[in-house]
Design a binder for these strands. Structure first.
Lengths: 225, 225
DNA sequence: GAATTTATGTGATATATATCACACTTTTTT
DNA sequence: AAAAAAGTGTGATATATATCACATAAATTC
């Protein structure tokens, strides 16, 4: 177990500011847990007791909206999960669910607090991460409410391709009903519009496998032509 | 000017953790500026150079969405403005505009960075503020996209009454077109639905003056009956 | 205080998308 | 391999709300 964290290949930016001694403590103050597809990592409404760090895999952040479950975003390792909850509120305000097989490090809050307290560089990196998230959330929210469904679906495809899978070819990480929750539409609209994109030669689709053939068009649709 | 900040009656929670010496430095590292109604405090697209702290008054945070201007939220002193931008991105991702006469303290970024670096309690309070904002943004966003217009208008009225003016009687701080931007509707829908609320005896209205007469109904509408 | 601009009220119409209903397909379970 | 469950495709219909088009009212400007 010695040097477990020091030698970890998937560190957060904040963790990279730490020294060998911190890593030593970190190793003894965390537990790594595997979750398989569909398992709840953080559950809305329960008490938040640890800091969760997504070490590998994909997860979705989602919350119960007034009428249905809304997926806020899809995140990819390495990233902290549920930081805002741990500090802003003791009760989780949203859920985090594994999209594929994931590894999560649960870090003792007291120890994490100690790092924040004693390591200003660490603390500053956490601030940066929170700031970036907030900005992203603002524009994501403005887009979702203002664009119509076609544009939002285009956005999701581009996000998956550019940021999550980093390839023009990928497999949709969820079913159409969930995609609806991510884009704020009905399952049926997702089906229709994906079919439309395929018919128009913008994507190629077989089952959940998608290849973006005409990224330009997709971007145009995203910008709402 | 001595003790200007120490004796300031409107401190941020973070500032309350500081000692006399910090306050001394703060006094010499900031400038207080007055803005009148409608003036831009922070402008989207420009470089962010200072930390802005809203010392008194109301402001709206808004950004250019794909099709129209969206008001993210209305904030009230005391609060930092545009923190996420200063750290997350050098270019302002949103605008902040004075709703009434406001006072803003611009604090030197380098000095603010120094505080974050040397005063862990200060830094922790900033983290808390960022966390709370993020949680709030998530649920606000889920609500706005899922509820229909009636529910969102009810929410805005409740927010104004409960959090901003802390009275059941207040004057709408903006015109109906802007309210549309806050709720994601057209100006006309705002007009129609406010008239409807008045007709149903839920509010009393004369010009922009509003009194919430039946808060219970409003809450019911907010929860989407 | 007359003229101009800005804000608001209200009907008629258009439209994007939800919803319902059901066929078909794929995956999972037994 | 059969049976059950979960996921998807697609038409018909309903509906909330945008949009357009004006009328009226209030606030600014000259």
């Amino acid at each position: 177990m010695k040097n477990e964290c020091l030698n970890c290949i998937c560190k957060s930016k904040a963790a990279e500011t730490l020294d060998d001694c911190d890593y030593d403590h970190l190793s003894t103050n965390h537990a790594t847990v595997m979750f398989s597809k569909g398992e709840n990592i953080i559950r809305q409404g329960t008490y938040s007791t640890n800091i969760a760090f997504l070490r590998s895999g994909l997860a979705k952040i989602h919350l119960a909206g007034p009428s249905h479950e809304q997926i806020v975003k899809i995140v990819k390792a390495p990233t902290y999960l549920g930081l805002p909850t741990t500090f802003g509120d003791k009760i989780n305000q949203y859920s985090v669910t594994a999209i594929d097989k994931v590894e999560v490090c649960f870090i003792d809050v007291t120890f994490f607090r100690k790092l924040l307290n004693e390591k200003p560089d660490f603390s500053y990196e956490i601030i940066l991460e929170l700031c970036r998230n907030e900005l992203e959330t603002y524009s994501r929210c403005a887009n979702r409410t203002q664009k119509q469904v076609r544009g939002n679906i285009a956005d999701v495809l581009l996000d998956l391709s550019d940021n999550i899978f980093e390839s023009s070819c990928f497999s949709l990480p969820m079913n159409q009903a969930e995609l609806g929750g991510l884009v704020d539409t009905s399952r049926e609209s997702i089906s229709r519009i994906l079919a439309e994109f395929a018919k128009d030669g913008i994507i190629e689709m077989s089952g959940r496998k998608i290849e973006i053939v005409n990224k330009k068009s997709l971007k145009l649709i995203s910008q709402n032509g």
